[in-house]
Nucleic acid binder design. Structure first.
Lengths: 224, 224
DNA sequence: TCATCATAGATTTTCGAATTTGCCTATTGA
DNA sequence: TCAATAGGCAAATTCGAAAATCTATGATGA
């Protein structure tokens, strides 16, 4: 998710990450038409460069292209939300089991560290300070990523990153905040991981995801 | 896999499918450098158009871009091969279970039809006629796709298509032909699907994939 | 002899404009 | 009044060339 910049970064790369982030964090609304001309002035790049990164977002499933009538931000729907959540369950659940089985002390360290950062920010959020949402989401990702980091498959990790970002998009759009419940599940996840109880961890993860989906569906933030 | 053309197809689209197919079927060798100038003359397009589709293949994981030193065809390795096979197991196995559970008669029809076409071609291949490899591979895909077509998740089907094509690439590169064994597994898959025995089907699938990987590894076609 | 730096050539990245395609409106004929 | 078609405008697609970047070669100095 939202990987950090290199020093000699191409402007196409920079704009790519910017637009990608704008989609995920809802600054570009679902279904919004992406006129090349307009984007060109807004992001200060040429149309050709824009088209390159738009093509990338296209195969990522973050935007859609309808024939030769240009691009638009991928629409959202309850159906898609369920599909994305199910994909996350499948990929992350599988990776979690593998990772817990083969993780070493180094891995435990990463998991503990990531959880510490996440828990700290969650405490802050629970006390009412909502200013750091983006950092929180990054820490959330870092924790879940740390958990599965020893799954042994780069292909699996890549697929997970991709689906996680789409999942995140729905969370942002639906303004999900499950505060204490989510924080507790994170603690349970940490505990199960350190105890090397893959079954328990997978169960918590499934609950974590399903409750989040339920929460947003009930809130009615998504047009079905 | 290799979806068919629309009538009003853009030349970028056409070239995209062409290069994609050239990579998958090994006409562009793993690790090969993709010089823009050269591709531009070879595929008769402008560099800008080329870069658009190259960016697509990039996020598909069919090519790699190293900084601003251009693109090259994704290299192959035994490790990657195992990862791709494992991903296929995970995605197709899951989709297969879902699909078998919720498939209707319509679905059974598609499965039977797809298997008939595949079996016919396999018989032809077994008799020594290797001229129709590409058609064979398409039928193989159509059969596996038909089996999982009722899984209920477009996201899952898309992810499967993507991984299947990469899997296919390794099969082609390693010149895999398991003839009778593969044909038998296809028959078993068909039988289990019609009997709605998801467990049996999943088992056959896993064997189908693992034996294929074993077969290529043993043949030593891949530099580890 | 070796490492460092500068320069030229090759390649990628970026751009602005030309071409093509799709869309909307108005006009014609029934 | 309605359907069909032509024309004009807006937008996407494609291109060729300029700008930026990398790579390889050779010169310089310790």
């Amino acid at each position: 998710m939202l990987d950090q910049t290199g020093s000699t970064e191409t402007i196409g790369e920079k704009t790519y990450r910017r637009i990608r982030s704008d989609i995920i964090f809802g600054r570009l609304a679902p279904g919004q038409k992406l006129r090349l001309e307009r984007l060109s002035t807004q992001y200060e790049t040429s149309i050709a460069t824009l088209r390159e990164l738009l093509n990338r977002l296209l195969v990522e499933g973050l935007i859609v292209a309808e024939g030769q009538r240009g691009f638009e931000v991928m629409p959202v729907s309850a159906d898609r939300w369920h599909e994305i959540a199910a994909m996350r369950e499948l990929l992350e659940g599988h990776a979690l089991r593998q990772s817990i089985e083969s993780g070493d002390v180094e891995w435990e360290g990463r998991v503990v560290a990531a959880h510490h950062k996440l828990a700290t920010l969650e405490k802050q959020l629970l006390s009412g300070d909502r200013s750091q949402t983006e950092t929180w989401k990054r820490y959330d990702w870092e924790f879940h990523h740390a958990l599965i980091s020893c799954c042994g498959s780069k292909a699996l990790l890549d697929a997970h990153s991709a689906i996680f970002d789409k999942y995140l998009r729905y969370q942002i759009i639906a303004v999900v905040f499950r505060g204490e419940a989510a924080a507790r599940e994170h603690r349970e996840l940490l505990k199960a991981a350190l105890k090397r109880d893959a079954d328990a961890a997978a169960d918590v993860l499934v609950k974590h995801i399903r409750d989040c989906v339920q929460h947003t569906i009930k809130s009615g933030a998504l047009a079905s």
